[in-house]
Design a protein around this nucleic acid. Sequence first.
RNA 1: GGGCCCGUAGCUCAGCCAGGUAGAGCGGCGGGCUCUUAACCCGUAGACCAGCUAUGGGCGGAGGUCCCGGGUUCGAAUCCCGGCGGGCCCGCCA
Length: 514
Amino acid sequence: MLQKHRFWRFVELGIDPYITEYSFEVRESLAKIREKYAYLKSGEETQDRHSVAGRILGIRRHGKITFMVLDDGTAQIQLVFRYDVIGETLWNVVELLNVGDIIGVIGRPMKTLRGELSLLVENFKVLAITWRDYPEKWHGLADAEKRYRLRYLDLMLNKKVREAMVAMYRIEKAFRDFLDSKGFIEIHTPKLQPVYGGALARPFITKIHALNRDVYLSIAPETYLKRSIIANFFKVYEIAVCFRNEDIDAQHYPEFIQIEIYQAFADWNGMMKLVEEMVSHAIKTVYGDYKIDVERNNEKLVLDFTPPWKRVPLEEAIEFFGHVKVKGKSYEELIDIAKELDIKVQDPRKGKLLEKIFEKVAQPKIQQPTFITLFPRDVSPLARPFRENPEYAERFEIYIGGLEVGNGYSELNNPILQFYFFSKEEELRVKSREKFGEVEHHPMDKDYVRALEYGMPPTAGVGIGIYRLVMILHGLDSIKDAIPYTIVEQDEFETVAEQHPDILEYYTARLGLK
RNA sequence: GGGCCCGUAGCUCAGCCAGGUAGAGCGGCGGGCUCUUAACCCGUAGACCAGCUAUGGGCGGAGGUCCCGGGUUCGAAUCCCGGCGGGCCCGCCA
């Protein structure tokens, strides 16, 4: 580094970015100021003074007047620094400021001649500086690797991602408020479980040293939420982290958030009604309308969440959307159909074949919120058999924007059948291993069966993937964009303390740390 | 597990196919400009190490260098092989 770091120039002006200021009294948010002073006419100034703080995200210097963009997390506003207003001492500091620095400002709302609502700065404090250069103003942070590795910059600068994060919080809050108004309570289920279950997926295995035993990270809260139903908590839910040790792609990530809801004395019809009511309520609360505009891959799409949503049985959906006849076909016939459709599937269950065919020919065509109903019983070990035909389960999945975002059913509350289905799952595992390799199955959970033996009322349940929902609503290409922080391998780099021994020396000496 | 693509300055990228002195824009630094908003205009350093003078920079020299390591070649950012990091698609899961 030949150039003296600008840090030293702050010090020369009597400003140490970590020692001079320890706090700043913020009296107003930029969002409020924008709202309150929207009425100002171009060229108009007020005598009101406001105290705000945030990060500088843009600088335009014009000699003795400088414009900056300040972002306080609620909104952005233009700051106007005028030499004749702040004087020479502060002006010298203005000249040192970079994009990324954090300042506290006292200023008067005004509108510039070009009509930009601004704060005319009367005083300001440097609260922290950035040691690293920020991305280019026009393209921003675009490189995928850097976006995920330096996610705080991505979250700070990329509007689409940032909006999705805020929306996710609001959607979760709307779900909670809705369920609360209906008398539901949230129960936190264990993330470390002796038997994994509630879904068909490979689990993470970890160890509890205190007990010297292996445990599984929860793949779903389901069996514990249903234990809660048995505990006479008849309306429960959880917004739960689930861990599934599967591969990562645009629609899957090993840890994800799901809301699971269980309501006693209801069946799948009641649950579908609750879901469409709750989701459409959240959409309207967060976006202001049941219909929302989504832009994905430069294509515009209007999603209409107005209840009721369409309900289409699985086999009908295959025939209607995919134009493939599957009703009444045998296992062998379905294998042939799958082959013709270029679907690689190795599974002894007829239901699995139907699911695969559905995913290939029908799913991409289902854009509007839709319940696909009547899933095969053999792929639904926790669901109650369909009352009119036990080959099917009273199970539905929720599809929006061509993606599966949820799954629900009339819960199997018969402990005798539940034991039988679990046993069948174990058999399936053993049989399939010889013939097809490892097949996803639900492990035997006798402890859960015993809970059912104490009596579970008729109950309906559902799980909705929050990241997937947000991904669709905001037209994000990858589920990773909807997840605040995803995993990346460690990289090598030097810290500022390593690059600038003089500055390290300054601080250790200044604070007497030697 | 299989396939495809990418990695060059702080950022966004060109150069690679057809091997021959490492580039642009933005950002930085210096100068000009009191209503701009991707501000503009002029200049300049910067891809790693490091010597001598001196703390503002200047002067001169040797090597290195395009994610890393090999190879081919008189010569590699460029071609080949292997690795690392990242993305996308297929298979399995939501």
